[in-house]
Design a protein around this nucleic acid. Sequence first.
DNA 1: TAGATTGTTAATCGATTAACAATC
DNA 2: TAGATTGTTAATCGATTAACAATC
Lengths: 214, 214
Amino acid sequence: MKLTVSRLYKYRDTLIRFRQIGMVRVFSDDLAEDMNTSATQVRKDFSLFGISGNKKGGYQIHRLIIQLDRLLGKDKTHFVIIVGAGNLGKALMNYGGFEEEGFKVVAVFDNDPRKISRKGKIPVLPVQGLERFIKARELDLGIIAVPYFAAQEVAGRMTAAGIKGILNFAPVSLKVPGDCFVSNINVQLELETVSYFAKIMKENKKHSQQKKAL
Amino acid sequence: MKLTVSRLYKYRDTLIRFRQIGMVRVFSDDLAEDMNTSATQVRKDFSLFGISGNKKGGYQIHRLIIQLDRLLGKDKTHFVIIVGAGNLGKALMNYGGFEEEGFKVVAVFDNDPRKISRKGKIPVLPVQGLERFIKARELDLGIIAVPYFAAQEVAGRMTAAGIKGILNFAPVSLKVPGDCFVSNINVQLELETVSYFAKIMKENKKHSQQKKAL
DNA sequence: TAGATTGTTAATCGATTAACAATC
DNA sequence: TAGATTGTTAATCGATTAACAATC
């Protein structure tokens, strides 16, 4: 399910690019090609979410985007808080891409008094007020950008206050209640994984060269 | 396979934390609990990579770390280049975590002459010299931190010059030869996915409350 | 020894892919 | 109409989990 949903967001992305260059309709095959997947996968994903096209004429891009927008909640603004105003937290706070895509960072929290500031476009507040803030605004989404040893505590406080979705940048596996969804981004780990498979690729090459030499 | 490998890196992480607090041996169960997985999964992963413990006494942490280090290439320094010196590229360049974990960013490339600088600890070079640099140093690993419309071109040049593993931050699906491994990080997409499931979580709650009310 | 733990084989689960009927 | 494309059902694949024999 998670994979299907994230593909739906990607289809939407692709469709918006297609629309920008003047396209009006697409076939499942066009989407598949752009996204390195199969036409069957595309149709399967759509069918799972009740999206249908025309037996011959494919899908109307504009209409499809509207359907996906509603399905994926892209027709609303989503409010987010970030906990942690270190390098990463600040980078995320200043990243313009969120706003463009319908996310509004309403506040950042930190436990370092020197980082607190109510002046900027996005306030940086003391983490003590976290729960109160979340409850008062009925927020659902939180981003964790604190060191690994603080992440579980932050997650616990977030969920206790009603957060239902967490994007976690700390390299630990968070324990959260069943009514909260967590997604992890671990840059370090991704780079490690890439380096592992890069090594494999090199070794394979060597082997096939050895084979050739025989 | 990818999933297993990335779990191995996580086991290593956990083991290092365990060792720091003075632990000497672990059972598959301890690792599983810390990582939110099952003991069977842990043993299966190990067995897949020929790692074995003691029928009764579990695994020796120190020895296990050494084995994982060799298996995962953590016993060597890996050299990396970054293409794109925008916000993200700069953040990655200044991120200390890589060096700690055995990755050394040897250069950053950009096509904006104003960003070029050979003075800093890590030089920022004109992207024209990319292929030459990769070939001269026989580099395997590249990070793509350029806008989406430039990513495919960069990937093509990287792979043509011999790069075997790419960590891609651009929100597009890269087409690369079969002897190059790509891993994608798409912060925007992850946040979208989280927001989708957060909504589901809220709706489920509403439903169960409705049920209760009956 | 009895109990606990590993390592592996078999079963299950979920996701992707193949096949194909429906139809524009 | 014939050919192309969708939507769905069945088959396959890969990963996780359950079961359990081996053994410390």
